[in-house]
Design a protein around this nucleic acid. Structure first.
Length: 100
DNA sequence: ATTATGACCGAAG
DNA sequence: GCTTCGGCCATAA
């Protein structure tokens, strides 16, 4: 049970290509609402390209948010997956996944 | 135990 | 649309 970060990583592994989720949603799904910031910390520590799609996690307002390797890299990865981004924001915000 | 940090959020101006 | 500010929560020191 410690592994807050493990839970975070496991969860976001289920986010499919071309879709995104938010830090807030992840926190909520882990039953730690409000822990959005902590989620960011977890992702930051576990930078693991490709295997764990930490680039598919964005801010709740649709803006891209941060990334260990820079927002540029994050946006590039997303666009390669078909996510449309304009001015730091996800255009098709309807493609967000929610873990009820 | 206390403090600081950060890939955040929401409300307010 | 923007910026600022207070509040959140898990880590690290």
């Amino acid at each position: 049970m410690d592994n807050f970060k493990k839970k975070v990583l496991d969860l976001i592994k289920s986010v499919p290509r071309g879709k995104v989720t938010t830090y807030n949603e992840v926190a909520r799904a882990l039953e730690s609402p409000g822990a959005a910031r902590a989620v960011g910390q977890a992702l930051n520590k576990n930078e693991r390209p490709v295997k764990i799609p930490c680039h598919r996690v964005v801010k709740s307002d649709g803006r891209v948010g941060g990334y260990k390797l820079g927002r540029l890299a994050k946006m590039k990865l997303l666009q390669d997956e078909g996510v449309i981004i304009e001015r730091e924001r996800v255009a098709n915000f309807n493609e967000v996944i929610y873990f009820f």
